[in-house]
Computed example of a mutant assay.
Amino acid sequence: MENNFPKVTIILRGYNYEQVKTVMDVLKGKHDHYALEITLNSPDVLTTINKISKEYGNNFYIGAGTVLSLEDATNAIDAGAQFILSPIKLSKEILEMCKQKNILSIPGAMTPTEVMELKMNGADIIKIFPANTVGKKFFNDIQAPLGKLPLMAVGGVTLDNTVSFFENGADYVGIASGIFNKEDVLTQNIKGLKESLLLFENKVFK
């Protein structure tokens, strides 16, 4: 399942449905490159996830971020999230529920011990957070003894360092303010959003 998961997850934190919808419209046709994470600490978030997943879920992976508990995970999945992300190491119970419901799980880790525990507990992708704190070399360094792992760099990922995370052993990145200008999302500035996306793509996918 994670094999066809896009390399870049765009993280939208604190935006309403209309603002998220504008970003989705800008991403039209780019589902091979991007997944979308809507964080649970956003306004009326379960309604937003529900609407966006109904409108775009056939083409895009639409997920929930900042999942911290079994209740969070259950609510997000019931709303239509196809994957869940967390800044923390999710419990085995949550990871098993995701497996049963065919939901991709991306829990957070910061140490080799946490990474290995999550792998053994069935995490699909392991989010290294905060990635910029541990540094790019961390990704290759932990895979030397532990073997190839599906790792996502999140936290401090920007236009300028995305490629170097990939070059250093990360399979995926999650990017928030590093791709779109917050003001453009808030004001639904399609021209500005398209320009930012083009800049990112020219740097990362060319």
Rank of each mutant, 00 (worst) to 15 (best):
I125T: 12
I62K: 02
Y56V: 10
D124H: 12
K51G: 00
F138L: 01
M97A: 10
K92N: 14
I126K: 11
L70I: 11
G63I: 08
I94V: 15
G57D: 12
S86L: 06
K101T: 10
T111P: 06
E93D: 05
L90P: 05
S69P: 03
S105M: 12
Q82Y: 11
F129H: 08
D72V: 09
I88F: 13
M116D: 13
T47G: 09
K89E: 15
L68Q: 04
A64V: 03
Q100Y: 09
K119A: 13
G65H: 10
L85Y: 04
E93L: 00
T113K: 14
K51E: 14
D78W: 00
V134T: 10
K119F: 15
N102E: 13
E93R: 14
K127C: 03
I88P: 07
G108W: 06
E55A: 15
D72C: 03
S53V: 01
M116S: 13
A109S: 14
D124W: 15
N132L: 01
K127T: 05
F138D: 05
I62P: 06
E96M: 11
K99T: 05
I49Y: 00
A81T: 01
P87I: 02
A109N: 11
F129Q: 01
M97T: 02
K137L: 12
S86C: 05
S91F: 06
E114A: 04
I52M: 07
E71Y: 01
E96L: 09
T47C: 04
I128P: 01
K137R: 08
I128F: 07
P130A: 10
I62L: 12
D78Y: 10
A81F: 08
S91R: 05
K51Q: 15
G135A: 01
F60D: 12
I62F: 09
A73N: 10
T113H: 11
G108A: 14
I84A: 00
N75F: 08
T113G: 06
T66V: 08
E93W: 01
I84F: 01
F60T: 11
I125L: 12
G63C: 04
E71C: 00
K99Q: 01
D78A: 14
L46T: 11
T47F: 14
K51F: 06
I94H: 00
I106K: 00
F139G: 11
N59R: 10
I103H: 03
E96S: 12
M120I: 13
